[in-house]
């Protein structure tokens, strides 16, 4: 008899202090006054979350209308670890600002030049500022913070022709555009128009970073399209942090460098 590979299972449960005890701890707030009824509600929620049995170890009123709970319980859900596929990571390693600076300095031997803008009628600089401003986003500093990156933030409502001219003038390694407004698919249209303008302005270019700047588009509503459809090199979606963008720039523009 043979056992086929796909029938091998590796069942795991959370670990408290004994293998298989399946104990987890959660905390949450319910919008109800503190008391026995609130505790029953918390236990019912725990049950529906798959914790059985569950115990409320702490409940505390937060003002007259809210109660905070800490609950311990036995998770009834099982995980087959054998069936867990290693998630496909980003195609580049995430680097610290120090590593990014080192990569640029040691391989390029000069600053990496980034030109950023909101193009077309879009006046929402939230996205581009989150990536470029020192202030940054999600606890990470923006690209201005990187000593080896020279940032030209052109701001909002920049015409495509001007963006191309400024990118040439600055000898940009990368051009970042953000697009928040999506009425009538303006973000798709604007980005395609920009890519076409760069293709015209750099007729001999091979690809992003070779003969023309790397083109990067960012915005919350690009999830239905692929970079190639727009003519850009990379799309970043909602929640992208400056560190991800910086790491990508290194991977794309300084490919010979590795953190090791």
């Amino acid at each position: 008899m043979t056992v086929s590979v796909d029938t091998i299972k590796q069942i795991i449960r959370p670990y408290g202090d004994t293998t298989g005890d399946a104990m987890v701890q959660v905390s949450f707030t319910l919008p109800v006054p503190h008391g026995p009824r609130a505790e029953s509600a918390a236990l019912q929620l725990a049950g529906k979350m798959g914790l059985d049995p569950a115990t409320v170890v702490h409940s505390k009123p937060m003002g007259p209308d809210f109660t905070f709970f800490i609950v311990y319980g036995k998770a009834t859900h099982l995980i087959d670890y054998a069936g867990i596929v290693v998630p496909e990571g980003r195609e580049y390693p995430l680097l610290t600002p120090k590593q990014v600076n080192l990569a640029i300095k040691s391989v390029l031997g000069r600053k990496l030049v980034v030109v950023g803008a909101c193009i077309g009628t879009d006046a929402h600089t939230v996205g581009i500022d989150a990536i470029l401003n020192v202030k940054g986003f999600a606890g990470e500093k923006g690209l201005e913070y990187y000593r080896e990156i020279e940032v030209h933030n052109l701001g909002a409502q920049v015409e495509v022709a001007e963006l191309v001219a400024r990118a040439k003038e600055a000898d940009a390694d990368a051009v970042l555009v953000s697009q928040v407004v999506t009425q009538k698919s303006a973000h798709i249209h604007n980005t395609k128009q920009m890519a076409a303008a760069f293709a015209d302005a750099y007729p001999t270019s091979v690809t992003g970073g070779l003969g023309r700047p790397l083109l990067v588009a960012g915005g919350p509503r690009f999830d239905t399209v692929r970079a190639a459809d727009l003519g850009v090199d990379r799309i970043f979606g909602k929640g992208t942090t400056p560190g991800e963008v910086a790491s990508y720039l290194v991977a794309a523009l300084v490919p010979s460098w590795s953190p090791e």
């Binding site: 949450f28 707030t29 937060m62 809210f66 905070f68």
Partner: peptide
């Protein structure tokens, strides 16, 4: 911050 974060 959540309500509970502030309370803690």
């Amino acid at each position: 911050p959540w309500l509970s974060d502030r309370d803690l």
